[in-house]
Design a protein around this nucleic acid. Sequence first.
RNA 1: GGAGAGGUGGCUGAGUGGUUGAAAGCGGCGGUCUUGAAAACCGUUUUCCGGGCAACCGGAACGGGGGUUCGAAUCCCUCCCUCUCCGCCA
Length: 422
Amino acid sequence: MIDIEIIRKEPDIVKEALKKRGTDFNLDELIKIDIEKRKLIKEVETYKSEKNGISKLIGEYKREGKNTDELFRKIAGYGGKIKELEEKLKIKDEELKNLMLVLPNIPHPSVPIGKDESDNIEISTWGDIKKFDFEPLPHWEIGKRLDILDFERAVKITGARFVVYKGDGAKLERALINFMLDLHTSNGYTEILPPFIAKKESLIGTGNLPKFEEDLFKLRGNEWYLIPTAEVPLTNLHRDEILKEGELPRRYVAYTPCFRAEAGSYGKDVRGIIRQHQFNKVELMTYAHPEKSYEELEYLTNEAAKVLELLELPYRKIALSTGDLGFSSAKTYDLEVWFPSQQKYREISSCSDYEEFQARRARIRFKDRNKKNRFVHTLNGSALAVGRTVAAILENYQRKDGKVIIPKVLRDYFKGKTYLGE
RNA sequence: GGAGAGGUGGCUGAGUGGUUGAAAGCGGCGGUCUUGAAAACCGUUUUCCGGGCAACCGGAACGGGGGUUCGAAUCCCUCCCUCUCCGCCA
């Protein structure tokens, strides 16, 4: 949620932001409703104030044993009038809230303006793209050949877009999770193992609801959802809390599986483990001081990139354009890892600064030096999506003889073994 | 699944239908004292909304929603949640 004060005082900033995003949103309608709402508040509060005054007098008169008939005559009409106005106000208030919840965040000025992902800007690249003297196989072929990924049986158990990891495949997944957690916890992130189910309010807090319900797996009527990312429990860890200024930044890391309905992604990435209904991810999340927010975004993105560098996987860092930016985000960097079989970089991490957009929705504040309650800034980023990391390792570390080398930093987790599936 | 207890401010915990936004204690913050700290003492300390440059004024909130009443933390209804015991269980 953005600050309604900005809409009131500088609606053009918001309109400009919506235009940059290519979002169709009737801001004037929202402004109209806000004005009507405030008018109703004024009215109803005037009546209430008068009524409260008389009510208080009744109390005093009774205590002093005075006659209260006159006061009762005076107060008679107020109840109905107030009730009527309050009903109107409630409707207006709900209308306004519903609109505020589907209004996207304002992009940071540094975000490149563009209509979609084709306007994203490459910031940097890292690592040498390996030249193969043979045709590199896609990761699903390698997985099958080594007997570490089993798609057929996953279909039998559940259906499409699921996978069974087996033997060294399962071990690689587990090793990566441990490797990532070990790295981040030694760099100031506190490890959290949260619930993998979240309630509606939590998903409203992060911005997944009410707008993107179709992306989620819902359980038990309207109450529970499988988390689409650890961002949801991590951001709601401090929902409705007022933190101390000195406690910022608070940095958390969590491993969780992520569940996504992937509605509308039908022809995309149907093969392999790039796009699954369930995948593992290690997520970084920071509650930052507003003044340190963008510094923190760089720190967090670097932390994610470090994983790729230690795994010696070539990647590039891109800045998402306004047209590609997520609903809640003010600025996002994506890290994309090189996939030899596709001759393409593919997203493996997304690091975003939400500024106070989520904090406002989830009421996460801190008390500053002047004892004022202010909203924190929230940030998060994948570090990394584990399934995609497995895919990238299989493809980048494959050899002509069919063997796949285990990245050096993971060998300890494999008791010093050099190749997968042996 | 069965039985019971309870939801009040950062925490513990009082609360009579009428100056109770709420006693008291703890904690936090500021100060006095001290070389410094502790202790002691004094003061201060919920949040949101509307209006105002501001001082401030008004409204709202004692799990959520509804009701009774001129007036509800206090009475009634309903939903939710938490805890304890028994059963079952990783």
